[in-house]
Structure formats: C-alpha cells, structure tokens
Design a protein around this nucleic acid. Structure first.
Length: 306
DNA sequence: ACGCAGGTCGACG
DNA sequence: CGTCGACCTGCG
C-alpha cells in the first residue's frame, strides 16, 4: 500500500499566490480545509487531481513521493533558483520592481501542459480571469474525460486511500467540493464534441470559432503540438502566430507558461499600464535576460492582487 | 449605464 | 509597415 501523502519543505513558494496569479485556471481554494495555520488548494493538471496544503514553508501533497518526484516537482518548477532571481531584483535599485517582488515573491512560473496553455490563453484574450476559469471548467465538464487519480471520498478526504483500488470514474465519485461540476481532465484534440463550440452557454463568445479551428487543426495534425517543444523561442512564436486567434500576447503566454521560454514577456493591458507608468523611458530587458518572464509575473501579480 | 478584462482580426492609409 | 473599429460577455 502506497501512502498517498507527501510532505516536504519548499522555499519561495506560496500556493495561494500561484493559484491567483492568472497563469493557471484550475486551482480551487478548499475553504473547509483551511485553518489559521494552513491553506489547502485543489488542482487538476496532467489529468490528475491534487490537493496541496501549505503551512509556512511546509507543504503536504495528496500523492505518493514517487508521483511527486515524477510529476509535481517539475510542475512547480522546483529546479529553478528563485532565490537568485530575487537577489538580482533586490540589487537593481528599481523601487517599483522591488516592491512588486516583495509582494509577490511566492509566485512561480509553473510548467504546465502545452495544449492546455494554447487553449486557455486563446480563451483569455480580451477577457477576465473569472470568466476564463468558468469557460475552462465548462469545457472540461462538457468533454467529460476522466482524470487518472480518484478524488478522495468526501467522508475520507484526509485519510490515506489505496491507489490500487479500482477507480470509479463516475461523476458522483469525482465531485469534490471545489469542483462542484465534476473533476475532469483537460480535453485533448479530438476529445471535445464539436457542438460545444456552438453552445453560447460555454461563454467563449467570439473566441468559439478560434477554438473550433485549433481543435480541428490539431486533431488533423497530431504531432503539431509536440513539434513546438523542439523549437527555439523565435520559431515557436512564428508557428503560434500562424494560428488564427493567437496574436503576440497569447503566443508569448504560451511560450512562457507552456514551453517555459522564460525570456517571453507577455504585454497585456496590465503590464502595458505598468510599463507606461513606471518605465516611461523603456524597461531594461537586457538586465533580466533569462528571467524576464518571471519578472513580468511579479509585476502582473502585484497589479492584479490590488 | 458603460468601460474594462492576461487581444486579435481585417480594412485602410 | 502602423493605426483603428469591431467583437461576445459578465462584472463593477
């Protein structure tokens, strides 16, 4: 019997900040499991359900140590030295950036699934985070692709459970409180019924035709998505910009969050305002070569977190 | 009410 | 090349 609980100490990570940082749309706070000392978030990624409990620098994950090492360690980008990035910022003499860093230093750039980033950031254009998350959730629910790991039963949430038992993939068995409409995987090409893109209640708006276009294209060209992983940043940008519905900003988000090209610096409405207000003579991208995307994320988080 | 939200497209000059 | 209006929709 594998114990489905793994506890470890992680510095420079704040799960609530990550959940609210606008790079991922499938984190959910679990209020009934939050205490004065700790917070718990639920997440679906790579077709798996994961609960994360944080108390200071101590984290407990609802998975085996083996799964942690194989999947989540990389997902949370633990091999990048955020401490060094912090030192670079703190030594910059840039008061605005130092403040942004001090308020958002628990944010990390997750290494998320590429296809999921392509779709969720196509949805994100000219949109707001709440509605994006709603549309993404509906897309997963309507496609109804089962997750790999079973959600812990409501009555048995924190207890260990045997990973060798047969999974019950019915909607009832996989409806944890934070995913009230069911916990489902993100649908791959070919896994979405095409009529979903004509359903107004999905909230896609005018983006629906872009989505049906890319889903159709990717299903017809099965290796296109993975081929992006072998490209340089410039090559990936060019390939992404050829897709209808992907412009410069979304392509940069896909490069940063889906391909981990950390020099990508997406300029959205918030970052545009920041650059205009604090860097009227231009921002020194050269200084942050190799970490520009992470710097961008501190700025972005600082702005949207009020 | 009405402008904005992690923008992009196509038309026009 | 760069600029500009149109565009689904829900929220403040």
């Amino acid at each position: 019997m594998v114990k489905n609980m793994y506890t470890t100490v992680i510095k420079n990570m704040d799960i609530a900040m990550i959940a609210d940082s606008g790079q991922a749309f499938r984190f959910r706070r679990v209020p009934e499991k939050c205490t004065d000392q700790s917070v718990t978030y639920a997440l679906i990624a790579f077709g798996r359900y994961l609960e994360i409990t944080q108390s200071g620098e101590e984290f407990t994950f609802s998975c085996s140590e083996e799964e942690w090492e194989k999947i989540w360690r990389s997902y949370f980008d633990l091999d990048t030295d955020y401490e060094a990035i912090g030192e670079l910022i703190l030594a910059s003499g840039d008061d605005y950036l130092i403040e942004a860093y001090n308020r958002g230093r628990g944010v990390r750039i997750l290494r998320q699934d590429l296809w999921e980033m392509i779709i969720t950031f196509m949805i994100s254009q000219n949109n707001n985070i709440k509605r994006i998350a709603g549309s993404v959730d509906k897309l997963c629910v309507r496609s109804a692709v089962p997750i790999i790991t079973q959600v812990p039963a409501e009555s048995d949430r924190s207890a260990e459970y045997d990973s060798s038992t047969e999974f019950d993939h019915s909607a009832e068995a996989n409806t944890p409180a934070p995913f009230e409409n069911g916990a489902f995987s993100f649908p791959a090409p070919g896994e979405v019924p095409m009529e979903v893109f004509e359903d107004k209640s999905m909230g896609f708006g005018y983006r629906a035709e872009y989505l049906s276009g890319i889903y159709t294209y990717a299903a017809k060209h099965p290796d296109w998505v993975d081929s992006l992983k072998d490209m340089s940043y410039d090559e990936a940008m060019e390939a992404l910009l050829a897709i209808k519905g992907i412009g410069k900003k979304v392509a940069n988000c896909i490069c940063l969050f889906g391909l981990h090209h950390v020099d990508a610096f997406p300029i959205d409405t918030h970052v545009k305002q920041i650059l205009a207000a604090h860097y009227p003579n231009g921002f020194d991208f050269e200084r942050y070569k190799g970490v520009a995307g992470i710097v961008q994320q501190y700025m972005f988080y600082n702005k949207i977190s009020g």
